[in-house]
Design a protein around this nucleic acid. Sequence first.
DNA 1: CGCAGGATTGATTGCATTCAACGACCGTGG
DNA 2: CCACGGTCGTTGAATGCAATCAATCCTGCG
Lengths: 250, 250
Amino acid sequence: MADSDNPFEALICRLGRNHTLSAADCAALSALPHKLRWLDAGTYTVREGDVPQVCSVLLSGFAFRQKITGGGARQIIALHIPGEALDFQNLFLGISDHNVQMLTRGRVADVPIAAFQQIAMERPAVGRAILVTTLIEASIFREWVLNVGRRDSRSRLAHLLCEFALRLEAQGLADPDRGFELPMTQEQLADATGLTPVHVNRVLKTLESEGLIARNRRHIGFPDWRRLRDVGDFSQRYLHLPEREEHGVF
Amino acid sequence: MADSDNPFEALICRLGRNHTLSAADCAALSALPHKLRWLDAGTYTVREGDVPQVCSVLLSGFAFRQKITGGGARQIIALHIPGEALDFQNLFLGISDHNVQMLTRGRVADVPIAAFQQIAMERPAVGRAILVTTLIEASIFREWVLNVGRRDSRSRLAHLLCEFALRLEAQGLADPDRGFELPMTQEQLADATGLTPVHVNRVLKTLESEGLIARNRRHIGFPDWRRLRDVGDFSQRYLHLPEREEHGVF
DNA sequence: CGCAGGATTGATTGCATTCAACGACCGTGG
DNA sequence: CCACGGTCGTTGAATGCAATCAATCCTGCG
């Protein structure tokens, strides 16, 4: 292991967010065998059709899931932020039905699938935490079906920005007051929203001109979170974030 | 219990499809406490915002998941056929983030959530079978994001029909050679594909005139399955059906 | 018979796409 | 240091797919 710090700290925090883990559970998670790797943007961690042998845990940087149509059109299905495991979806399924790729350069810890399966079966609380995490991912998939199926371009983008901001905040990776660095090109935004890059560009400019977002290169600010949230028809219920008092700004 | 037959037979068969269950596991499932109910088309089994107390198992008829935008547009997220549990997605999540509704009149067995949680925690094989089932549902959500996000109307509808046909067949509920009875209005098809009812009507007529489907009221036949599959850009990998020889017709 | 829900058809509109070009930024290498 | 190439972002004009609006047609049913 390259560093003294526990690389699974963020993951444990993430898993513990929706289901309490004992100290022993956390220790077992920390002791998972793994290999650390740096991956460049665009690197695949899972390919459709493969039978994954390891489950990568994202330590830094960002990743995404995508599928491609026969015609070559790409749809981004989900975004992943540090602290999330990239492969729970494939843990028990065998052949992968989609691709997982790095959005930016970042570091991952590759854990053998068998090790995750074992810990999930031997430690009910961990198994349950993993199940809950995958269920939340499924909830996000559902919201994306709605987003892409029934919202107009303006709402779609606003919704995507809201989701990303809130998830970053929940993981302690961004202070929404200051906005965040959106690690995506407009082409990737297009693939995530089912639009074209050109149209994404126009909609972003619209949102900016309306004072709903502030842009500085890839940095996105939220001058009027409430209104952006309304435009994006955004309700955070589907993220199943733990209970807490209303956030000041959000 | 109203009838002598085991109402969970189809569910057990379904759960066992992707993960072997012991006789004891099956017996435990069969012994789940439950109440049988007949539900009319349109009846909700879960409502967004509710904390479900029971998990309904669909015994006959069809059901679907849906979400509504603030503007009132509805998106159908998934379809459910007999033998499927309607609420694994909410089993461990608390507040439901979407609605589940009957598509047709049908019969369900309501099982207390706690009973399902208990059996899942006490019987690792059952827990794993439930996990795998929810992962497959998630895989279907992903494919729907792609379908709605990146396919044109013709492909979307063709894809939907292919999926439904294959799932019915896998559950032994339809013989694809003879087609099947599609339990949806064109408006519901529209909500499932992110289109308008009017456009669904036109696309269906196109598919029919091209010889890709045969229609007789709600009955859909497949005069040229291969071509329909191609038009729908359909690959059954994402359904994670158990391995077996290629189907004669499909 | 008449009603109601769903299916069908036509005419028109509009949102997003497509095609094409240009511009801005950045790292690289001469 | 600056020219160069590549990626990404921006803009304009034209096109097109699906939406919208509005009737009309079926068909089962009370």
